[in-house]
Amino acid sequence: MNAIEISGLCKQFKGKRRTCVDALKNLDLQIEAGEVFGFLGPNGAGKSTTIKLVMGLLRPTSGTAIIMGVDSTLAESRRKVGFLPENPAFYDYLSAEEYVAFVGSQFKMDTALLKRRSDEVIKQLDLWEARKRPMRSYSKGMIQRVGLAQALVHDPDVYILDEPMSGLDPIGRALVKDIILDLKKRGKCVFFSTHITDDVEKVCDRVGVIVKGSLVAIDRVENILRSGLEGYLVHLQLSDADAGTFAGLQAVRRTGTVSEFYVPSSVFNAFMGAVNTSGKEVVLVETKRRDLEDFFLSLVTSSAQESR
């Protein structure tokens, strides 16, 4: 069973002067249990709209979203979900401890288990010292951590996180990545939105790119990275006499006795054959590829050009 199943999901908002804005156009998406899925898109692409539709905060114009086999318009669909909204806000007169306990009680957690889990997640998110203070005294980053704590407390099967790294410092971002990787290891499904490609590259199994309300690409992260392979940078130990060229290729840099050659992937095998024959020492081979950011930018740019 898919953890999240979105079929033909559309959302139109009424604009000014009876105009309609298509915030989401016919989205089809299946996210498997145990999968970490990154939902990538520029600002205003429809990421948060999709998440709000899945969480039942908005009503779809057409189409359906199903979470663990239950229609997302029903409150019951959220029983196995941990949700972090974008720029979260919680009852600021409550402390982190009280709020996490409140959330846990909504999932009908046993009191002793709730207390144990609450302490665990509060410590994990480095909120222990501040746990009894009202949240109105918290910084933005601390609120974001409370958001993650309340999403984790009941240990659900599905996590839907809207910009989970937003407002966090580098330490917080690293912590969130570790948490997501840990969830992945434990077979949980994580669906998170972001516009930061590095986040996706490091933790996701698959990525979907949404631009102007349409899903323009969906693939496994490794496939994208593999397809973006352009060549290799081969570091060879060469004498000064051989330093300039090797196997018909010009060195791009020379550091001490090591020369660096950029080898396009089409001639890589021939180049390495020549290295073998000559008996020269290979110091290092680096892959040169388009990263996810280049892939994302090319999709956004081509989408913008098409719409012109």
């Binding site: 909204p85 009852y91 600021d92």
Partner: peptide, 17 residues
């Protein structure tokens, strides 16, 4: 107004409740 509803209404409780 303060966006508390996003977090509360995304819990498994109905709006009626």
């Amino acid at each position: 107004e303060r966006r508390y509803t996003f977090s509360v209404l995304s819990l498994p409780i109905s709006r009626t409740t």
